[in-house]
Structure formats: structure tokens, C-alpha cells
Write a protein that binds this DNA or RNA. Structure first.
Length: 620
DNA sequence: TTAGGGTTAG
């Protein structure tokens, strides 16, 4: 007996495979009755593959041994193995007990193994575990997480001694199926709430768009003496991000600092994200730099933050830096950096990332592939964009929208319209953005009647309420065909208030078609909408001047001075060999400024020779 | 039982 105990103790003092094999050999030859204990010891040490090999050679493993195997698989997150072992156990006729069912049920939930879960449910009923809260709760959680809220409620009702965990699970279930009222009713019913109960209720509100209600539960939680934990503040920060509420976000940050929660990476990333969404990109970067651990989510959030805030160069830079880290860029990081390349029109970097995407098989990811397609089309490589589209095995409405808009923007109006027809053929439902693309295509091709037809179809066939963008397309459609009167009449009957884009479109068309009356009207509307825009004042002044109305022209110039309107400096830039070259009006600071101007002058000369009137749209 | 990041138009 002494020797036997010694053998198993030996195992605990080593994890070396050679010694394990020696112990195993001794057991096989001299102590075969020790095999079950040997397997149990291995499982306790998480040496699960070896344990399983030995387990498989045992003719009739005991119920206890099956339990150890399943719970070890479950503990190590080897969920499929846990389910497979359970099926084996049940098939062998070994009696199943409550403590076996709980980990198996949890594995079913995370693997969404619906069939097996339902079989286990009937087994639970048959075996009479119905009073066991440790079996019922994971079972209810399964239904809650798979959005079968009716079944979850039934299981909940059948539980005799309901603890807070039961309530919390069902609250999450209601949250997932969007029934905020039912979740709140349950929450109010609870006689005893844990921090998880409060968190579940906050995230229920957060996930269903009731942000202010979420914040008020967070307040109440503290007022009632329940101390928020890392999960509470993370959820609340995500609410602040959604609400763009920097003030509340900063109050939460103070709480985080006081409680040392910033040591938690998820909390810090949520804080970073809150800064990003509130436009405080510098603070986000500061948080990023202060973090001592960052995972792929942290990196992606920062890269996306830059991309979303128009800081595309910074997004690209950070992506490059990420390559020196032991973190592989994932789909989210790629989507964000591709979006940055699109904004920059950065062909070189875009292609590099494109090659990476294709070589790593990310083309199968509809988000990444759509962003890639969009990048190519924005960088002017429409044939490559088409190629990506054709290669994509899964496409969603965004994919179709991206190529339709890309074709329209690159001058392939007919192809864009044909693509839209094909999209309808294979029954992908167009959305509002699809129609912006389609209408833009019609605008570019001068297809007024077809455009109007699409506009009608959008409302009639797809029940899409036109937004200001759609109205702007129609105004542009009339304008480009010189049908200014119809454009103006359309603006007058629009169901939304015309904005600067609409009046700007009419203005530019009025100038091209020398309609001083409509130009004057549009400019006045523009001035009312954005009195700080210097360009509009200059335009109006020019309009009066060219009509010989000098007094009025002067008055506008004075008005500009009174309103202290500054002319904003126009700026353009181009990327060459990974370097961005920036140019301002009249700027001679560039090292090769002389050459640049020589080329510009040459181009102007060529244009004049080709009988273009360079200032045609400035004159009346 | 409760937490953090993404694509399309204008």
C-alpha cells in the first residue's frame, strides 16, 4: 500500500513525460488496480491527452472517472471533448448524475449544441434532477443564451429554491431577446441582488439602447451600497462612448483610478474607446501609451479610433508598429487600417495590406474583404476592386454597396446600375446606402428619368424613407442636366430641410448655367446656414460684382469683416514613397517647389490650348 | 450568471 501511494505521489512531483511513462509501466505490470487512480491523478494535473489514452483502455470506467474526465475537459475549455466524453458515458449505460450535467450543459451553451442540449434536458427530467439548482441554472442559461426565452422561463419557474444566479441568468436572457421590460420586472422582484445582478441590468439597458436608464442603474447601485466592479465600469464606459458623454466618462475614470481598476486591460481599453468616441483622441493615445499590457483589441481600438477621427496617417503608423509586437493583426485591425488607406488614397500601403489580407485568407471574412474592395476602389484601382468582389465567397449588403458606389464614383455608371439589378436578382435586399450609390451612378450618367424611377422604387418597394443624401442626389441629377427649375421646385417640396450640400449643388449648377437669380438665392440660403463659411461670402460678392452691382458687392465684403469671417486655407497632399507631401495656396516651402509650379503652369497651358476655360464656372 | 475593438454614402 505504501508503495502504491508512493507511486502516485511521484507523479505529482514531476510533469516529465519520461517519468510518467515509467510510473505507468510499473502500474500496468505490478498494480493494475491502480489504473483508475492513475488516470484521476493525471487529470488533476491536467495531463489530459495521456490520461485519455489510458482511460480508453479501461474496459468499464466508473461513473466517478467519467465525471473527472468531463470536468477536466470543461475546466480546460476543451468543450467538444467534454461533449464527446458525455455521449460516450451515456452510451455506455453509466449512470449520469447532476454534477456531470452542469459542465456538459455549459459546453453545449458555448458550442451552441442545440440538439444535444435538448436531449440532456429530457434526460434531466427523466432522471429527476429537476430540483437541483446546479443542473437547472446551466440548463436555463442555455435557453437564455440561445434566445429561447420561453423555455428559459419555464425552467426558471420550475426551480424551487431560486438563488440570485437564477435571476441573473434570466435577466441576461431577456436582455438578449430585447425584452427590457421583463428583465427590469425580474430585477425589481429580487429580494437580494449581487453585483452581477446590477451589472446584468446595466448591460441589458446598454445592449438595447437604453443608455440613460443604464447610467441611472449604475448610480442607484452605488446609492444602495453595492460597490461597482471592473465589469460595471466597463459597461458604463461603453455607454458613455455610445452617448459621446465625456463628462460622465471622466467621472467613471476617477472612480477607476480610486479603485485601481485601470490595471485591468479590458477596463483600460473601454476607457480608451470612450475617449475615441468622444473625439478625445489624444487622451485615448495617452491611455494607450500608459497601458502595460495590450492585446489585439486594444491595438484595434486605437487604430480604429485614429481611422474614425480622420487621423489616417496615425492609424497606418500604429498598424506598422503593431507588426513589431507579438500580436498578429486580426480582422478588426485590418478593417480599420484599410479604411485609413481608403481615406488617404494611399495606394502603396493599401496594396501591402491587401497582399497580407489575401495571403492570410482574410478574403473569407466579409468585413475585411469589403473594406479591401472599398480601399481599392477609393484608390482608383476599380478592376482590382471587382476582382476582390468576384473572389469573395460571402457577400453582404455592404459588399454590394461598396462596389456599386465604387463603380459610380469611378465613372462606370452603367456597371453600377447593372450590379444593382444583379443584386436584386439574387435577392439581396438593398438599403438606403445602396440607393445613394445607384442614384450617384444615374447622376454621373445623366440618367434623370431612371434616377427618379429608383427614387420612387426606394420608397414604394423597399419602404426606405429618403434621407438628405438621397434628396441631394436628385437635386444633383436635375442640376447636372441643366434642369435647374425642376431642381429648385424639388427642393421646395422636399420632406426634409435642405442643407448646405443641397444649396451648394444648386449654386454650382447655377454658376455653370449662368442662372444669376438662382445663384443669388442659393448663396443667401447658404449664408443663413453657415455664416462662418468665408467661401460663400466671396461667391456672393463675386456674383454682385459680375452683375455690376458694386455697392452690394462691397456690402458683402464688409459683412464678412463685421462677422470676422476668416478665409480658410485650402490644402492638398499626395503620398510618394511612404512620405506625405502637403501643399497650401501660394506655398513655396516644398523643396522642389520650382519644379512643381513649372509643371502646374505647363498643365494650365495645355488646358488652355485644348480650349478649356479654366475659370468658366467663376464667371457670369 | 455580468465586461472592451470593425466595413459601405455624404
Amino acid at each position: 500500500m505504501e508503495m502504491e501511494r508512493h507511486l502516485l505521489n511521484l507523479l505529482h512531483s514531476t510533469l516529465h513525460i519520461k517519468q510518467i511513462k515509467q510510473v505507468h509501466a510499473l502500474i500496468v505490470i505490478n498494480y493494475p488496480t491502480l489504473t483508475t487512480d492513475f488516470v484521476k491523478s493525471l487529470l488533476r494535473l491536467s495531463i489530459v491527452v495521456y490520461a485519455r489514452n489510458v482511460f480508453d483502455k479501461i474496459p468499464h470506467p466508473s461513473q466517478v472517472l467519467y465525471n473527472s474526465l468531463i470536468s477536466t475537459y470543461s475546466k480546460l475549455s476543451l468543450k467538444k471533448n467534454a461533449l464527446e466524453a458525455f455521449v460516450l458515458m451515456h452510451g455506455s449505460g453509466t449512470r449520469v448524475v447532476g454534477s456531470t450535467v452542469a459542465p456538459v450543459m455549459k459546453s453545449c451553451t458555448s458550442l451552441l449544441a442545440v440538439e444535444l442540449a435538448k436531449e440532456i434536458h429530457s434526460l434531466v427530467v427523466k432522471c429527476g434532477f429537476s430540483s437541483d439548482v446546479f443542473v437547472q441554472t446551466p440548463l436555463m442559461d442555455f435557453y437564455a443564451k440561445t434566445c429561447d426565452i420561453e423555455s428559459a422561463k419555464k425552467v426558471f419557474d420550475g426551480i424551487f429554491m431560486k438563488d440570485p444566479i437564477c435571476y441573473n441568468c434570466l435577466i441576461s436572457g431577456y436582455s438578449k431577446s430585447g425584452d427590457v421590460i421583463a428583465a427590469r420586472r425580474l430585477f425589481d422582484e429580487m429580494s437580494e441582488r449581487t453585483v452581477v445582478s446590477w451589472n446584468s441590468m446595466i448591460s441589458c439597458y446598454a445592449n438595447n439602447g437604453y443608455y440613460h436608464e443604464g447610467l441611472s442603474i449604475f448610480e442607484r447601485m452605488q446609492a444602495e451600497g453595492c460597490s461597482p466592479n471592473e465589469i460595471s465600469v466597463t459597461t458604463v464606459l461603453s455607454i458613455c462612448a455610445k452617448l459621446r458623454d465625456l463628462e460622465t466618462g471622466l467621472r467613471v475614470k476617477k472612480f477607476i483610478d480610486e479603485n485601481d481598476f485601470h490595471l485591468n486591460m479590458i477596463v483600460s481599453t473601454a476607457l480608451l474607446e470612450m475617449y475615441v468616441k468622444c473625439g478625445a483622441i489624444e487622451d485615448a493615445r495617452h491611455e494607450f501609451d500608459c497601458m502595460d499590457r495590450r492585446d489585439v483589441v486594444t491595438w484595434s481600438a486605437m487604430i480604429a479610433g485614429y481611422a474614425q477621427n480622420g487621423k489616417s496617417s496615425e492609424a497606418l503608423e500604429l498598424f506598422e508598429r503593431m507588426k513589431n509586437e507579438p500580436i498578429e493583426p486580426n480582422d478588426v485591425a485590418l478593417v480599420s487600417v484599410l479604411s485609413a488607406c481608403s481615406q488617404l488614397g494611399s495606394v502603396g500601403a493599401g496594396e501591402r495590406i491587401g497582399n497580407y489580407v489575401e495571403s492570410r485568407g482574410f478574403i473569407f471574412n466579409v468585413y475585411v474583404a469589403s473594406a479591401l474592395l472599398d480601399m481599392y476602389s477609393k484608390c482608383g484601382n476599380i478592376s482590382k476592386a471587382r476582382q476582390i468582389f468576384n473572389k469573395m465567397p460571402h457577400k453582404d449588403v455592404v459588399t454590394w454597396n461598396s462596389l456599386i458606389a465604387g463603380l459610380a464614383a469611378n465613372g462606370f455608371a452603367e456597371d453600377a446600375i447593372n450590379l444593382y439589378e444583379k443584386m436584386k436578382e439574387i435577392r439581396v435586399i438593398p438599403d438606403d446606402i445602396t440607393f445613394v450609390g445607384v442614384l450617384t451612378a444615374c447622376t454621373h450618367a445623366g440618367l434623370v428619368e431612371l434616377g427618379l424611377e429608383f427614387f420612387r422604387s426606394m420608397k414604394l418597394d423597399y419602404d426606405i424613407t429618403p434621407t438628405i443624401e438621397h434628396y441631394a442626389c436628385i437635386v444633383d441629377l436635375f442640376c447636372r442636366s441643366g434642369r435647374l427649375k425642376e431642381a429648385y421646385e424639388f427642393i421646395c417640396i422636399m420632406e426634409v430641410e435642405p442643407n448646405v450640400v443641397i444649396w451648394g449643388t444648386l449654386l454650382s449648377a447655377s454658376r455653370i448655367h449662368s442662372n444669376a437669380k438662382l445663384a443669388e438665392l442659393s448663396v443667401k440660403k447658404l449664408l443663413a446656414l453657415e455664416p462662418e463659411n468665408s467661401g460663400t461670402y466671396v461667391l456672393l460678392s463675386n456674383i454682385y460684382a459680375s452683375a455690376g452691382r458694386w455697392q452690394e458687392s462691397l456690402r458683402v465684403r464688409n459683412l464678412m469683416k463685421i462677422n470676422r469671417v476668416q478665409k480658410t486655407t485650402a490644402c492638398s497632399w499626395i503620398e510618394m514613397d511612404n512620405k506625405v507631401h502637403k501643399f497650401l495656396v501660394g506655398d513655396t516651402s516644398h523643396a522642389r517647389s520650382n519644379e512643381v509650379y513649372r509643371i502646374v503652369d505647363g498643365l494650365a497651358m495645355q488646358l488652355t490650348t485644348a480650349s478649356y476655360n479654366l475659370n468658366s464656372d467663376l464667371e457670369f
